[in-house]
Simulated scan of single mutants.
Amino acid sequence: MKPLQIREYGRMPDGRAVHEYTLDSGAGLRLSVIDLGGIVTRLEVPDARGHLANVVLGLPTLDDYRLRNPHFGVIVGRYGNRIGQGGFTLDGEHYPLDVNDGANCLHGGRQGFGTRVWEVEPESDSCLCLRLVSPDGDQGFPGRVTATVRYRLTDDRDWLVEYEATTDRATVINLTHHDYFNLAGGGSVLGHELELTASRYAEVDAGMIPTGLADVTGTPFDFRTPQRIEARIRQAHPQLQRAHGYDHSWVLDAPQDGELHRAARLRDPASGRSLEVLTTEPAVQFYSGNALDGSLASPDGQLYRQGDGLCLETQHHPDSPHHPDGPDWPSTVLRPGQTYRSRTLHRFG
């Protein structure tokens, strides 16, 4: 493990300094993170020949991340993905939420966790601890929530994200990370091979709110064996047409026992890079970067277009507060005295 590096990345409008922290495993994995949103600005991984490249999409400046970021690299909270109907009811009380996606609250609202400056404390050269206190009523959510997220590198090429949260009042919580991966280091990801350990996925309505679960068999949503994304994303399936690509939650086949199980495997045949995602969560959202339209550019000036990055967001299902608690749709309610815990491991090869 190489020594942690810290530099000033920029300043917020109120003068607060934002720092960038770079963890280096010494085995070819280098992770750069800023205080704002816990954003991963760079994630460098070697290819089959040992050449390093950044495999996550990023933006040129702090102001770009403040003002124009489509969730590149952020910690998502309080609630990853969508909650429909403009709010939810818990214990007989209705909570209107900040609506920022049609009639939905997306990724915790306009001022979700990805827009906040986190308190960052290096615990070692291989581990960063990020903390945030979200007040009662934040974006409409009840309860004062204290969230802790750790980014940890191993001596190999593993990046572990560990989440914890507590509350002083019953609330809902669904934390995740929103990296846009491109294992080629540039260009399109549609030639990547994707495998998802999931036999069912959540169909969505016109507002991208789940309506129920469907079997993947015989559909372009079947990634139980490795499939090139480009071979499936153009198929004339109503769900693909509705989302303009993939933006769906898959139900993982693994048991919900608190242990890490494989959710996904991604491979770029050209570079030889691979990414295995293991998680304790019950679902993974595969998003194919459908809204990338050339209006944003990378730090080296390349325009981002649809299919230039994809997300694999380990999480509970979207809109869970509107579904009865059960094995297919586990609850996202957190109560005082409980601790929310979740882990996701990214293993690069």
Rank of each mutant, 00 (worst) to 15 (best):
D308H: 03
Y287W: 07
D168Y: 02
R305S: 10
I75L: 12
F88C: 08
L106F: 04
Y21W: 14
L23F: 09
P269C: 08
Q227E: 11
S288T: 15
G207R: 05
L296M: 04
V204N: 12
L292S: 06
A165P: 11
D319H: 01
R30W: 00
N182M: 04
R228M: 11
G114S: 08
E44L: 02
H178F: 07
P46T: 10
A297R: 13
S295V: 02
H177G: 13
F88S: 04
S288C: 15
G218M: 06
G28D: 07
T154G: 09
R234Y: 14
P336H: 09
R66T: 07
D155C: 10
L62F: 07
V145K: 04
T171I: 04
P210N: 06
E313V: 10
Q315P: 15
T217L: 11
G185R: 03
A231D: 15
L130P: 00
Q315D: 11
R68Y: 09
L23E: 07
P330V: 06
Q235V: 11
G272M: 05
G77D: 02
V117H: 05
V145F: 00
L175S: 09
L175R: 05
Q235S: 15
Q302N: 10
G28W: 00
R169C: 13
Y79D: 01
V277R: 09
V74A: 05
